[in-house]
């Protein structure tokens, strides 16, 4: 098997705290509780999601409306975060921009997770040829540097939200596949799988009933980290001007527009930057904590 280099390649795709963290004992304590940091991050994300949803029925200012009296205006009662270079309401644009980020973050990872589960669990359970085929598919996905493929697809197939979601989802497949495979390998050796086979359970039943409930937990924890990855990728594409085109506000584009005004009106770039940073940080914190949490539980069980 081309196993070693594959796992190495996949490893690179994962943020930095993969497995070494667990080995370093000084980080593992307080294993039963999620801790206030987790709940703070959770609250922030929930608040932002609620704000995003509220754009559907609360009368926010039109994010594309240009109020010439408020070009580059500072903070005010009317414009909470001020107006940008075209006099548009930054607060409203940030909230609407969160909508694009979240619509990618809450779809792409789950498409990737579904495909990754299918491929990773098949590879880990059946091994042999299936494993080889899956590793070839994963290697092929990783043959393109992610940003370049995303630029290419959005350029040639059009910068629409479905295209954006799909191309980002495509890039989350290898990570999910790898984790699903590793966990399936781990659990498939447990005797309860052998017991199920001895009872005459079909492969499909074993995969769904016995393995899936175990494998999906570390994947779900990991999906939070993938969400932050997708938000960064979406933001980067928007920043480069190849993402969702105007007038739809996106954080990446807001920041790229703000850079033009950096000398005089730095907050235009900084407001969406802070929102984006906090969102990614929160997802990372939650994902990291949940991953530790589920790791510990899995080893106890």
């Amino acid at each position: 098997m081309a196993d070693n280099s594959t796992s190495l390649r996949l490893w690179r795709q994962i943020p930095f705290f993969k497995r070494e963290e667990a080995a370093v004992s000084d980080r593992i304590k307080d294993e039963r509780r999620l801790g206030w940091v987790f709940w703070a991050a959770f609250s922030y994300i929930m608040a932002l999601i609620l704000l995003t949803i509220s754009t559907n029925f609360l009368p926010y200012k039109d994010p594309a409306f240009q109020d010439y009296g408020f070009i580059n205006s500072g903070l005010s009662a009317k414009y909470w975060f001020g107006g940008d270079a075209l006099g548009r309401d930054i607060f409203s644009r940030v909230i609407h921009g969160a909508g694009i980020s979240f619509s990618v973050a809450f779809t792409s990872p789950f498409i990737g997770m579904a495909i990754g589960l299918l491929m990773g669990m098949s590879a880990g359970y059946f091994r042999g040829r299936v494993d080889t085929v899956v590793s070839i598919i994963v290697d092929s996905i990783l043959a393109f540097p992610n940003i370049v493929l995303a630029i290419a697809v959005l350029f040639f197939a059009g910068p629409t939200l479905p295209n954006l979601i799909l191309v980002i989802a495509f890039y989350t497949i290898p990570q999910f596949t790898r984790i699903a495979r590793a966990n399936t390998l781990l659990y498939a050796q447990r005797e309860f799988v052998m017991a199920a086979r001895a009872q005459g359970a079909s492969h499909l039943r074993i995969l769904i009933r016995e393995l899936l409930p175990n494998v999906i937990i570390p994947l779900a924890a990991f999906s939070l980290l993938v969400m932050s990855f997708t938000i960064i990728l979406e933001g980067t594409l928007s920043f480069l001007g190849v993402g969702i085109p105007p007038p739809t506000p996106t954080w990446g584009r807001m920041i790229s527009e703000g850079v033009e005004e950096l000398v005089e009106n730095a907050w235009i770039a900084f407001v969406p930057s802070i929102f984006m940073f906090l969102t990614i940080l929160s997802l990372n914190l939650m994902g990291d904590r949940l991953r530790q949490f589920t790791d510990v539980k899995a080893s106890n069980a």
Partner: peptide, 30 residues
């Protein structure tokens, strides 16, 4: 600190660096 930096996308990092070293304390070209 490393954990925080991990949550900073490249383009925000660049924007912040430009603001610090080219605008607030202009010692480098932006």
């Amino acid at each position: 600190g490393a954990f925080a930096v991990l949550a900073v996308p490249l383009f925000i990092m660049g924007t912040v660096l430009i603001w610090i070293f080219a605008i607030w304390w202009p010692i480098l070209p932006s």
